[in-house]
Simulated scan of single mutants.
Amino acid sequence: MKQLEGFGKFLESLRGKMSLREAANKSGLSHAYIRDLELERNRSTNEKINPSPVTLKKLSDAYNIPYTDLMEKAGYLENESEQVGSSKAALQEPVSMNDTLFIEVSSKEMIYHTRFERISQAVTSLLDFSVFMDKLEEMGFKKMDTDLFVNMNHVQKYNEREGKLYFDALGISKFVVIAAIRQKKYHDLILRSVARNTGVGLEFHYERPSAADSLLSSVRRPI
């Protein structure tokens, strides 16, 4: 399947009355890049550009249009019926999602990070990739950067100043650095997740007590 003729105009029609800056805030893409996609060329080099599957996922979320529809119109899904036949096998994750701390995603591979392993899985079907992306939200994952999805059920410490999420209460093991725009968007969710996962009251995180107060609070917390 070839890309829809006038695909850039189609993207512009999806944006509608939404300003470029509003579309940028919703998608995490720059407003200049969104405009380049609508014009189908890089205005700095005048070279033709095509959005990647990851970019299309961001736009589908921002414009509230099914991801597979965008993938088809962009020419990535050449024969959906053939790809559907292989979906069941391709959607088998190489590791339990409950044990996965975070996932790095690209159009070519997905890298699963657990407490003890780092497992890579190639993306063999773009249709499966789109289905998988839709499933992540249902499994408790949130998009915290361009290609980073974090399992909020495992976050136990939040360093707001550095934008770091840790998967242990002491902050000495694995961590991820999240994008500033996502940090602002999910600030309250992060605090609630940490409180839930550690058993420490939400007010404890909002007050940001001193180290001594933290120790005292831990001692007083009922077992």
Rank of each mutant, 00 (worst) to 15 (best):
A90R: 15
T146Y: 13
V177S: 09
L189W: 03
K174Y: 00
H154P: 01
V84D: 06
E5I: 12
E160A: 11
S106N: 08
F149C: 01
A74C: 07
A90H: 13
E104V: 03
L191K: 09
R21K: 14
S173C: 09
A195P: 02
F102K: 00
P209Y: 03
V84R: 15
R161L: 13
F167V: 01
S52N: 04
R208P: 02
E117N: 15
K108T: 10
L136H: 07
Y112T: 02
S30Q: 09
H31E: 06
S13Y: 10
Y76V: 01
I65A: 04
L70Y: 04
F175G: 05
D128N: 15
L148K: 03
R43Q: 05
V194E: 06
E5N: 12
S19L: 02
P94R: 06
S107E: 11
G85T: 08
N64T: 07
F7S: 07
I65R: 03
D213N: 13
K26C: 07
I49K: 05
Y76L: 00
Y166S: 06
E137I: 06
S86H: 08
Y112R: 02
L170F: 12
R115T: 11
R15A: 04
P222D: 12
I65V: 15
A122I: 08
P51F: 07
Y76W: 07
N42T: 08
D147N: 14
V200L: 14
K88V: 11
V131C: 05
E207N: 10
S210G: 09
L91Y: 04
S30C: 06
A90G: 08
S44C: 09
L170D: 14
M97S: 02
V150D: 00
H31N: 06
I190G: 00
K184S: 09
Y76P: 01
K174N: 12
P94M: 01
T100I: 02
V219T: 11
A169S: 11
F149W: 06
L165Y: 04
E80G: 07
V105S: 03
D99S: 13
A23T: 03
F132R: 12
I111M: 07
A24P: 12
E109V: 12
D69A: 10
I181T: 15
G163A: 14
E47P: 03
R21T: 12
I65Q: 05
D69T: 15
K88I: 11
E207S: 10
V54L: 11
K26Q: 14
N64F: 07
V177G: 01
V219H: 10
L91P: 02
D61A: 06
Y186H: 00
T100D: 01
K9Y: 11
A90T: 11
I103C: 02
H205Y: 15
R220Q: 12
K184A: 09
G75F: 09
E82R: 13
K142E: 11
R41Y: 01
E207H: 10
L77N: 01
E40K: 08
R35F: 14
K174L: 14
I34Y: 02
A90E: 14
E160S: 10
Y166K: 04
F141Y: 08
G140V: 05
R41W: 00
E117H: 14
V95T: 06
V219I: 15
A32L: 13
A195R: 08
S30V: 02
S130P: 01
